[in-house]
Amino acid sequence: MDNKRLRLIRDYITTKVMIAITLSIFILFCFILLFLIWRSSLFLSEYSIVEILLSSRWSPARGEFGLYPIIIGTILVTGIALLIAVPISLLSAIYISEYAPAKLKHFVRPFIDLLAGVPSVVYGLCAFLFIVPLVKDHIAPLFGVQSTGLCIFTASVTLSIMVLPIIISLCVDSFAAVPLPLREASLSVGATRWETVKKVVFRASAPSIISAVILGFGRAFGETIAVNMVVGGVSRVPVSLFDPGQTLASKIISDYSELSSIPIRESALLFMALLLLVVVVAFNVISKIILSKTRRRWSY
């Protein structure tokens, strides 16, 4: 067999292997999804979805699995985290890409990347050492509330800091992709720099900003360790932001020992994991639709 035949055979075989590995990504995803659906079907067959989502009692020992407080906790923690993170990260991204001198730009970027690389457990530890006492001694008394510091508010602040670098670096990239002539046109008709940012740069990169925020949401929504360390871990509907709460991901990790115990409890936990995955998939799809719908309108 000559050398050329051998190379062609090798090409053929390697291509097939590459196809197989690529398809295995699809299979992996479908397998995780179907597996979680299969394992949580026991839970879903014994309790109605309305009952699970609206009942606020969580006591597995008595067979009560109300997810309402956990879902409220998740929404509050994630929502407040984004409320804090989005304006701060947008403003910093604008400053980095539009205002900062080139030197500062190059100086800041590695630090943002480093912040993005800090492991979540270190964020959790720092929040536990710094934000928790701060909330307990200073912020909660400011609002006239008693708090241990382990509360929804602390978790939100922690998450918002974790989400900042992600949104910032994506936004800086998308601002940089806005063509310079668009800005020049705006400036030449007398707009100030801020007006140019507001009316030209923001609009031109709106789809990317939205998808950056959605990505940040996904990170905040699924964050487990850091939230678990500071949220308090109480499955009750919180009355104020300084009450302890619980989120889906953090509930899974604090109850993980039940994974090996009674089938119905394991099934309930896997249902929560399924819920997490479904929301993440849904938001990815929404982000994809927004990006592809707007790409045509925003073509410049």
Binding site: G218, G222, E223, A273, L277
Partner: peptide, 9 residues
């Protein structure tokens, strides 16, 4: 999607 999937899953 897999990138965005929480590691707990």
């Amino acid at each position: 999607i897999l990138w965005g999937t929480p590691s707990i899953i």
